[in-house]
Design a protein around this nucleic acid. Structure first.
Lengths: 121, 121
DNA sequence: GTAGTATATGAAGAGTTCTTCACATGCAAA
DNA sequence: TTTGCATGTGAAGAACTCTTCATATACTAC
């Protein structure tokens, strides 16, 4: 985990790196991909079978994930097989699910309480 | 984004709700806000002191977080105080940090092989 | 070589999100 | 009431992201 000192790599503030990472995950197709890859490695055409999306769109989304280094690809028997490069992503998505569940609960609970009286008395 | 009207609650696929949630978090200012709120509750002007951002922009970002029910606000002594409504967000951000660290490592490892010494991203 | 399957890329338009600005509101002190 | 500080909102353009389409590349079989 050393910093490369060659050249000048401006250290991106951590919260900005986080934002970039979360934004990368913030897309239904990409999340589906990562979930499928959490189960096991998949070839592109396998992903295609399980996600309702055009081939070239899938490719684009895979490219995004590759750029962020969240996945890696290798060629095997004329197919390209993708896998997660950071296995923690799996737990991460599980945590996300938890929060969303809580969020749904909170959203329901809060609704009646805070409605401001914008009454025009 | 989707507005839920009273009565008609369309069940959103989970991976789409996740995407929405992650996209909400995918913004530097909003992450900063959530991190600060993880430490303790903050009044708006306190946040303003610690984040380099225009007041009205901060307000906008707070509005986004309120809409998603990630934060709640209350008025106290002429100030508006914000707090996290889902405490798990804190652990979530910690996990995110871990992944990003690993990611940086992976990116570092891959670099010599795949890039023509020009990666500015 | 050609053909065929699998995957990737670039570019364009549609759509969405961000930031800024001007103004609006809430509340309290004078 | 008027003033003043704290916060919020709507609107507009810039900037970015998504999807689609056409085409390109990689590899294998013939």
């Amino acid at each position: 985990m050393q910093n490369l000192e060659e050249g000048e790599r401006v250290p991106i503030p951590l919260y900005q790196a986080k934002a970039e990472f979360l934004r990368t995950l913030g897309h239904p197709a990409r999340i589906r991909i990562l979930e499928l890859l959490s189960e096991r490695d998949h070839a592109v055409h396998e992903l295609l079978d399980r996600i309702a999306i055009e081939p070239s769109n899938l490719s684009q989304q895979l490219a995004v994930l590759r750029r962020t280094a969240l996945v890696v690809s290798r060629r095997h028997d004329g197919e390209v097989v993708y896998s997660l490069s950071v296995p923690e992503v799996r737990d991460f998505l599980v945590t996300a699910r938890q929060i969303i569940t809580n969020l749904a609960a909170v959203q329901g609970d809060l609704e009646p309480e805070l409605t401001p009286a914008k009454s025009a008395r």
